[in-house]
Amino acid sequence: MHDKGIVHRDLKPENLLYYSNDPDSKIMISDFGLSKIEDSGTMATACGTPGYVAPEVLAQQPYGKEVDCWSIGVIAYILLCGYPPFYDENDAALFQQILKAEFEFDSPYWDDISESAKEFIRNLMCKDPKKRFTCKQAISFPWISGNTALDKDIHASVSAQMQKNFIKSKWKRAYNATAVIRQMRKLAMHKDDQNNAHVPK
């Protein structure tokens, strides 16, 4: 997809689908409603789903396909522990967490996860888009291409955490680009109000 210059801009678990009911079915990426061709102009629109959006999108900076790689890191994090790296009931607080790009591998949920898997996530959820893994780098990383994953069955613990976290109202709520843009404008206006309040009259 990236080789063809397509940036999805809304990667999340809900947009990953099985092609068929076969046990070894291939996985498809769906919902290209927010996707854009990279060469069609500068991308700076705040769009996507809160929780999966890259810091540069929230900072309203021009961005590229690196935003998809960040989202892949978030998805990998969730699939390995069952809860998101960033979470808050308040969108503004959630966005501040993402902008800092600070997350933890909490015990005991990450105790059985290999250091290679953690390194994979760190490289995808890197705040600086220029230092972030590309898809090609991610695919060739030993945790994906080699045999550095631990031989542990984490299904039960991850499943329990997912059920606990996905019933929260914020997880069930569907977001769209308009909602994110509206929220970002509110935050920007609030920031301007705060800055103006400190300007001497």
Results as ranks from 00 to 15, higher is better:
M1Q: 14
M1V: 10
K4D: 12
K4G: 07
I6N: 04
V7E: 02
H8L: 06
D10M: 03
P13D: 10
Y18I: 02
Y19T: 04
N21R: 10
N21C: 06
P23D: 15
P23N: 10
D24N: 15
D24K: 13
S25W: 03
I27H: 10
I27L: 15
M28E: 12
M28I: 10
M28G: 05
I29C: 06
D31P: 00
F32M: 08
G33E: 11
G33M: 07
L34C: 12
L34G: 00
I37G: 05
E38R: 10
E38A: 13
D39A: 11
T42A: 12
T45S: 11
G48S: 09
T49D: 12
P50K: 04
Y52N: 00
V53Q: 04
A54L: 06
P55E: 09
V57N: 02
Q60D: 09
Q60H: 11
Q61R: 12
Y63E: 07
E66M: 01
E66I: 00
E66H: 02
C69S: 10
S71A: 15
I72F: 05
I72S: 06
I72W: 06
G73C: 05
V74E: 04
A76V: 04
Y77A: 06
L80A: 15
C81K: 04
G82W: 01
G82Y: 02
Y83D: 04
Y83F: 15
P85V: 05
P85D: 09
Y87H: 13
Y87D: 15
E89C: 03
L94R: 00
L94D: 07
L94M: 15
L99C: 08
L99V: 11
L99E: 15
F105M: 04
F105E: 09
F105P: 01
S107A: 08
W110R: 03
D111F: 01
I113H: 04
I113W: 00
E115H: 08
E119A: 14
N123A: 14
L124V: 03
M125E: 11
C126F: 02
K130E: 15
K131T: 08
R132H: 07
F133C: 02
Q137L: 12
Q137E: 15
A138P: 02
S140V: 05
P142E: 13
W143N: 07
W143E: 07
I144W: 00
S145L: 07
N147A: 12
T148A: 10
A149L: 08
A149F: 06
L150K: 13
H155M: 08
H155V: 11
V158C: 07
A160Y: 07
Q161W: 00
M162C: 08
Q163N: 10
I167W: 00
K170D: 15
K170A: 14
K170N: 15
W171G: 10
W171L: 09
W171Q: 14
R173A: 13
Y175A: 09
A179W: 03
A179G: 03
R182L: 09
R185I: 05
L187A: 08
L187W: 01
Q194T: 09
N195D: 13
A197K: 15
P200G: 11
K201F: 06
